[in-house]
Every structure is written in structure tokens, then in C-alpha cells.
Design a protein around this nucleic acid. Sequence first.
DNA 1: GTCTATAACGTGATAGAC
DNA 2: GTCTATCACGTTATAGAC
Lengths: 210, 210
Amino acid sequence: MAVKKVKKELDTTTEAKIKAAARVVFHKKGFAATRTRDIAEEAGINLALLNYYFRSKEKLFDIIMLETMQGFLKSIAMEFNNDKTTLEKKIEIISSAYIDLLIVEPQVPLFIMSELRSNPNELLQNLNTKQIIMNSAFAVQYQQAIKQGKIAPQHILHFIMNLMALTVFPFVASPMLKIIGDVKDEHFGKLMVERKKMIPIWIKAMMKAK
Amino acid sequence: MAVKKVKKELDTTTEAKIKAAARVVFHKKGFAATRTRDIAEEAGINLALLNYYFRSKEKLFDIIMLETMQGFLKSIAMEFNNDKTTLEKKIEIISSAYIDLLIVEPQVPLFIMSELRSNPNELLQNLNTKQIIMNSAFAVQYQQAIKQGKIAPQHILHFIMNLMALTVFPFVASPMLKIIGDVKDEHFGKLMVERKKMIPIWIKAMMKAK
DNA sequence: GTCTATAACGTGATAGAC
DNA sequence: GTCTATCACGTTATAGAC
């Protein structure tokens, strides 16, 4: 059958299998600690194929890194630029969507942050999330709310830090939290679900405080 | 002079120089990405001396890791167990002390968290911070405040997560935040100082919200 | 204790048969 | 496209002179 492969089958392509495996292993161990052999094994393919399709470990990594960053920032960036929703609604949507995302792929934030630490962040410059967020519909609404005295006059970066901190940090710190708090995986999951309700409430309280 | 070295001089010992260098490099790059040669160079000593004093890269790493974790958790653990201070005062002291600490060594949390990710956490088990926090004076005060209706009935781990998130996360995520927010290092530092004042205010507002 | 030289090993990448 | 075999190199660790 010389029929062109349809999209559904893309995941079973050798190339796709390698990418999927690379994603898993890189996310779990980071660039320096993963061996190309780990990826090949995870993908169930031969080591040579990795270089055949992607030329080098680094090239493969760059692809995974870029896609991961895009996936991670896309959800905020989009909702920040949605001019149909109120400030409060945005907070609910973002934190809820993020926690759902992180329950599925809890290693992503730590992966991104630890890789960004050493890398001369050329990769990031390409993601034009930069001014997309600071000039977003959200930013406008935020400044308006301050002018109207609805929220305390705090730098918008504090807001972004706080929102991300409350949603993302527990996943980044989970190994430590599980030990400090002596919490099992299942219980930890329950706490995260609770946070979906609480974070918007907490954030709103914070924004008014001064 | 066969006089025993006094404490002040300990830092100039070869062994101490290696440890100090190892701390710097491991914190910056993590275990997998650092080469013993990097440490030797940073310490200004010969590579062979590293193995002479510490037997292996891994043994040296374990020492740094343990000391770093202890330093990082000591400050919370101590204040949590201080029964002379009120709940509110504890929050102020902890967040302020932490931010001061992190301004000096901003790489520490990311180092700890990324190394903890892969490691079978035998190291952590030794730190008996485990039940020290959950059975602390703070924990008692926290439960009392809930009973007295002073704060919303939320699992104490949520509180710990929130306090750590607000103080620690900006340092963990700083590379990303600097790009998203287009912030220079100097401005970032100013934001962190602002947070010393704000975090206790925010936390108190959150604790009452429901 | 400190150095140089080198051994022993792991890992990324490729050549070449199929 | 996929495999086996192997190269080339960097890195950890040690032997042995000083």
C-alpha cells in the first residue's frame, strides 16, 4: 500500500516514536543526564536510527525543548489575550487549565526551569511570548482595575509570579513536599485538585490586600 | 609552625577549597552536567587531589547535597519550632529570612529540586525535617487558629506550599520571568525586596479567604 | 600532599551490510 | 530505513614519581 500516511498514524512512525521517547526521557532526567541509548530503548528502536533521523542528541533536544516551551506558554499567552473574559474569569481559567495540564505532565515545569538555567537562552528569544503577555488584554484590564481602585497597585509581574507560583510550584517541589509533609502520591493528587478551587479565591484575596 | 589550624583558616585548606568550588559548580550546573575538571579548575587545584580527598565525584556531591539541604531547611524548621512567636510573626520571619538567603544564593532551590527529581531520595530520609515540621509549634498554632475561626480550615500543607511558593518560586523561575517580563537583573532584585514586605500581607489575606 | 601520565570506561556518532 | 559493529572522544579515577 503506497497510500500516504494519514495524521492518525503519525504517532507510529519511527520518527514520531523517537520524539515521543525523547520527550519522556528528557523531561524526566534533563539533557545532561540522559543518554541517547536511554531514548532509543524507550522508543524500542536502534540507537543508530536516532542519529539517522535527528543527526544529534542536541538537535533532538532542541526540538523537544521548543515544543515543550510552546505547549507550556501557549495556554497562558492565549488566555491572557482573550478580550472576551473578565480579569477574574481569566484567573480561574488559567489556574484550572494549568493544574489539569500539570497533573498529566508534572515534570514539565522543572524540566523547563532546570534547562533554562544553563542555556544561553537563544531558544526563548524565538518564543515571542515576550511582549505578548506584557501587552495583552489582561495587562490592560489589570491596569484599569488598579486605576479604579479595585485592586492594590502592585507591579503586574508580582501578579504573574504569584499566579504561577501557586499553581506551578507544588509540582516543581513535589519530591520535597512529599517528604516534608509525609504525603503519598494519591493524597498529593487530591491536594492539587483542591487547589483548582482555592487558587482563584486566594489570588483575589491577595490582589485586594495591601 | 606546627600549630593546629584555627577555624578561621579552614577555608584555605585544600579540602575546603575543593568543597567550596564543588558547591559553586554543582549548584550552577547540577550533578550530571558538571565535570570534575570544572571543580578542580574552580578550586585552583589539581584534578587528582579531588579524588585524593573525596574518593569520587559522587561522594563529593553527596556531601554538598546534604549540607545544602540542611542549610535550606534549617531556617524554616527552626522558626517553625519556635514557641515564643505568634503565627503571624513566624510568617514574617520565615519569608523575610528566606528571601535574604535566596538573594545571596539564588540557585539553591532549583539545584535541590532538580537533583531530587531523579535521585532515590535516601539522602532526604536522613534529614529528620520530616516530622519536625508537621509536629511543630507552628502546626499546633495553625490548628488552633482554625478552631478559633481565625483562618479558613485548609490543610496545613496548602499553607506550607503557598508560603514556599511565593518566596521561592520567583528565584526558581527567574530565567523565564526575566524574559516574559523583559526585566533586567537589577529590577528583578528590586521586585524581590518588595516581596519581603508583601508576602506576609498576601499570606494573611489568603488564610482568611474562603 | 601534590603533581603528571595514563588507564578504564561510558557515550555520541558513523560506516557499511542488509 | 534499519541493523551490527566500531570508532573517536571526553571523563572519571588511579598509579607512581616527587
